[in-house]
């Protein structure tokens, strides 16, 4: 059964990503950890659906693969808008 080593490796990678997300230290480590965890989730669901003999559950992995990127876009937009707002507030205070 080739699937078991694959699942095992994925679980170890997920645990490592969680270690990085919990420890940090910088925010970007955490963002990357979440992103990586999302990718590993997609892979895990894909492998597990074959392992469980339900390949039609591959839909779920597909859904994750499509939707996962939205969170990262939101993070990008969050940091950008925060940057602009700070600059705006600074200018406002200076006046």
């Amino acid at each position: 059964m080739i699937f078991y080593p694959v699942v095992f490796a994925l679980l170890v990678t997920m645990a490592l990503a969680i270690v990085r997300a919990v420890k940090g230290p910088s925010l970007y480590d955490r963002v990357l950890a979440v992103n990586m965890f999302g990718t590993k989730t997609v892979l895990f669901l894909a492998v597990a659906s074959y392992l469980m003999g339900r390949p039609d559950f591959l839909d779920l992995a597909l859904a994750y693969a499509l939707i996962n990127s939205i969170g990262v876009m939101a993070v990008l937009q969050f940091f950008q808008s925060r940057e602009f707002r700070r600059r705006y507030e600074h200018r406002h205070e200076a006046e």
Partner: peptide
């Protein structure tokens, strides 16, 4: 917020392993 994202992903995988694909899809979306 980032950790809660991971929490939700883990939750979805657990639902999936329990064969609750509809719930896992909701959690995914």
């Amino acid at each position: 917020v980032m950790l809660s994202g991971i929490f939700s992903l883990l939750m979805a995988v657990n639902f999936f392993l329990l064969d609750a694909a509809d719930v896992a899809l909701t959690e995914a979306a």
